[in-house]
Design a protein around this nucleic acid. Structure first.
Length: 270
DNA sequence: ATGTCCCTATGTTAGGGA
């Protein structure tokens, strides 16, 4: 099972790049964030022609998340919002079951500037995500939470940590809320397969359009797959595909790709 | 210090968001 997550920064502006990538990579599932279009304006037809059915939570101009699932896989029990605040109208979360696994596509609030109401909204959203993850983990099924977390987990996940100390993506309060997710028993799939090493090659999933961040490889690792123990037990690989970031009219994010084995640990004594 | 890209609309340029 091959599952990818990609913040596309407008699905309509990025459609040719996404179509090319799907044709090359053929993932079973692609989780999308920052659609920047209403549900009805989502390019269903172009993706259906590639055998992908779509689950979409859109919003005009901002946010928006989707999941593309390759036929004949079936989408079951969709949930179109993060529980915990019926008054939250921002399109940042969807969840569904496919092949016996529970998957989410999430777009966690950026939270900048920290003096604005955007920052407490980010922290409340993270608390809701944690509460909901407790429920998901209790189900015992494999759970895969993928998306743009807008969290730099550790100093090695940013090109200049000292410059980001007070940013909503990196400040201690944000990282503490993210760690609370890990402490529930979730595994950061990328780091499980690629431990950070002193002097090692940095791994980023986002490079700002501005200031030559891409040509200088000054990025952030903010797009993550968090896996429940039952999903982590099946973890085969997790990689970052830098290729799409270098294309003309690229998103500022690039895909993170997860592959899972069909079954988990089997005891030699059974 | 700045650098970009994409969205919307009191719309063909400006402002917001990231």
């Amino acid at each position: 099972m091959k599952i990818a997550t990609w913040n596309v920064n407008s699905v309509r502006a990025r459609l040719p790049i996404v179509v090319d990538w799907l044709q090359t990579e053929r993932p079973d599932v692609l989780l999308l964030q920052e659609l920047k279009c209403e549900t009805g304006a989502f390019p269903y037809d172009a993706l259906s022609a590639l055998e992908y059915q779509a689950l979409v939570v859109g919003q005009k101009a901002y946010n928006g998340v989707a999941a593309l699932v390759r036929r004949p896989l079936e989408i079951e029990q969709p949930l179109m919002a993060l529980p915990g605040d019926d008054g939250d109208v921002q399109a940042r979360y969807l969840e569904f079951t496919v092949a016996g696994m529970r998957l989410a596509s999430l777009y966690l609030p950026n939270g900048n500037p920290v003096e604005s109401d955007k920052y407490p909204y980010k922290l409340r959203w993270m608390a809701r995500l944690r509460d909901h993850a407790v429920t998901l983990l209790a189900s015992g099924q494999p759970v895969i939470l993928g998306g743009d977390y807008n969290i730099i987990p550790e100093p090695e996940d940013v090109y200049a940590p000292e410059d980001w100390r007070e940013d909503a993506l990196f400040r201690l309060e944000s990282r503490t809320a993210y760690r609370a997710l890990l402490y529930l028993g979730l595994t950061d799939a990328y780091r499980a397969r690629h431990p950070a090493e002193p002097g090692g090659e940095p791994a980023y999933s986002f490079w700002d359009y501005q200031a030559g961040r891409w040509p200088r490889n000054q990025g952030l690792r903010i797009d993550h797959f968090l896996l429940s123990p039952q999903a982590a037990d099946r973890l085969d690989s997790c990689t970052i595909d830098r290729q799409p970031r270098g294309l003309d009219k690229a998103s500022d994010h690039t895909p993170v790709v997860l592959t899972l084995r069909d079954s988990g640990f089997v005891s030699a004594y059974s």
